[in-house]
Design a protein around this nucleic acid. Structure first.
Length: 213
DNA sequence: CCGGGGATTATCT
DNA sequence: GATAATCCCCGGC
């Protein structure tokens, strides 16, 4: 188990990183309790040019300030007044690229995750979707702006590399307001994993082009 | 299986 | 005052 080096995040192609981070493992240690899960769904948000991004047009506010920080910073914000979203900041300082972690396949600490989410039994909703996974993993706004260099929440590789045939590419979820940019194929997920979010329709079978991005 | 709508509040205009 | 990178439940097939 190796923690991803900052160099992994500090690259210029956020779409490529969103694809490569699939299969990596998020581990949180909150109050001494360890929970972990494998990343099975992500979305890339491409800095200033992307209408779906909080940083579109170079917008810079108190909320999205961490997007402009150094690679490997966490951008955590509340959506719809009640859901916590975990993003990984990539690229150089002042370039507001970020990756939304949309789903995990739970590995360690399922009992704790059930407790945090108030669920009775393990089913595919435990860590399906960004709001659910943050809740299950104990991620809160208190982690906003912190680095993945820290041990409390970090991302690791266990050496497993997804075969290309298992990666599917699609438009992003919930960004209809972004005009033509809503169609950009910036979402990646693991084929057939039951913890992947989205409707059957948005998950129409297909496979990521090997040469994309 | 599918679509519609309510929940609930931080954030920006 | 309106909107939002969501989730869950409900009703109708």
């Amino acid at each position: 188990m190796k923690k991803l080096p900052i160099g992994f995040y500090k690259r210029e192609n956020v779409v490529l990183i969103a694809k490569e981070i699939l299969g990596k493992i998020v581990i949180t240690t909150i109050n001494g309790i360890i929970t972990s899960g494998r990343i099975v769904e992500t979305e890339a948000y491409a800095a200033r040019a992307d209408k779906a991004s909080h940083a579109y047009g170079g917008r810079r506010t108190n909320r999205n300030e961490p997007m402009y920080a150094e690679a490997g910073t966490k951008y955590v914000y509340i959506c719809y007044g009640m859901h916590t979203m975990l993003n990984v900041v990539t690229n150089n300082i002042d370039v507001p690229d970020a990756i939304l972690i949309r789903a995990l396949h739970p590995l360690v600490g399922v009992d704790e995750m059930l407790q945090r989410t108030g669920k009775r039994t393990l089913d595919n909703t435990l860590t399906k979707g960004p709001g659910n996974l943050a809740k299950a993993m104990g991620i809160t706004k208190a982690h906003n702006g912190l680095s993945f260099k820290n041990n409390s929440i970090s991302i690791f590789s266990d050496g497993f590399v997804l075969p290309h045939s298992q990666i599917i590419n699609s438009p992003r979820i919930g960004v209809a307001g972004a005009g033509e940019d809503a169609l950009l194929p910036y979402r990646f997920y693991v084929k057939g994993d039951t913890f992947v979010s989205g409707s059957k329709k948005s998950n129409k079978e297909g496979i990521a082009d090997e040469s994309f991005p």
